[in-house]
Nucleic acid binder design. Sequence first.
DNA 1: AAGACGGGGGA
DNA 2: TCCCCAGTCTT
Length: 369
Amino acid sequence: MTAETIFTASLLVWSDGIQRPMPWKGERDPYKIWLSEIILQQTRVEQGLPYYLRFLEHFPNVFVLAAATEDEVFKCWEGLGYYTRARNLHTTARFIAESCNGVFPSTYEDIRALKGVGDYTAAAIAAFAYDLPYAVLDGNVYRVLSRFFGIATPIDVPAGKKAFAALATRLLATPSPARYNQAIMDFGALQCTPKQPDCSTCPMLGHCVAQREGIQHQLPVKSKNLLKKDRIFIYAVMQNGSNIIVRQRENKDIWRRLYDFPMREWVSTNKVPATDPQALFRFLFDNEVPEGLALERVSKPYKQQLTHQSITTFFVEITAKNDAIMLNSGRFLAENSILAEQFKLKKIYALPRVVDKYWQEKNLSLSLF
DNA sequence: AAGACGGGGGA
DNA sequence: TCCCCAGTCTT
């Protein structure tokens, strides 16, 4: 038996002996499979699970999703991250409902052409929904294959991806691509884990190159190292009675299409004058604070750690004399600022995590008095 | 080929 | 902190 044969055979045997229940396992409805795969991109199963269930509740089929507004879809996605996925999900739902009569594409090429569907997701849908012979290539697969076969080629460069794709395709157990794909991802998640792989109970013990050479922790190899950027956002939380100014983020920055408050980024190398509320108030308006605006207080710093950025936010709480002054001041900071009712912040507008956290704590402390 | 894009959990 | 997670798209 070749190493490749041994791999596939022992993988399938292993998968019969484990349990990893997930609501989309064994699912054949391409809509549900597609939904689960989009949600699970770069997202742990435990994190995505509640979102999957909620989406299905709100949007049980592609027509309901297509008929929803973008704000509704985003509100359901709120907190999950990588928000372009939500936009693509919505766009693709409308495409399928309107241009395909609601029938999900059933060939690899047609599935792959959908917005938000890359190589991985196309293979997953093709295999799980239609049992087509396409091997998935995700983080689990890279890890498992690089270790078992002792491949030190970086997985984050095109040449590496190509090599792994060719290998993965050879390994695919053709009688049941769905079963094989499910097995290798379960194996990566449960047995051949990133940090502390459980080699002692591994069915591939003795066959795995990394285990034999004791280099499990060195594989897979990644060539790129990421740089983290520090950023400071100063938010203007302007209120007049039950009204508040919000705006939708529209540029190419993070949190595109989510809502937050008008803001200004602190780009100076100087330290933020956090203990001087007036200074932050003036900073927001270039030292020329509009008439009719009054500073109430500045929040404590709220921090948000992201993969590529470390963001610190201060919320400058301001009361306005009337709505017009408030709206004008908001537009001074962000042209598309709008007047909104406060209660809609929780009900309608999808917020970045850090803004949501601030808003929750602020209203919690208010209700105590 | 390289960056950008979120947020949570584990070590 | 850093790394990783059922990756994709843009530049």
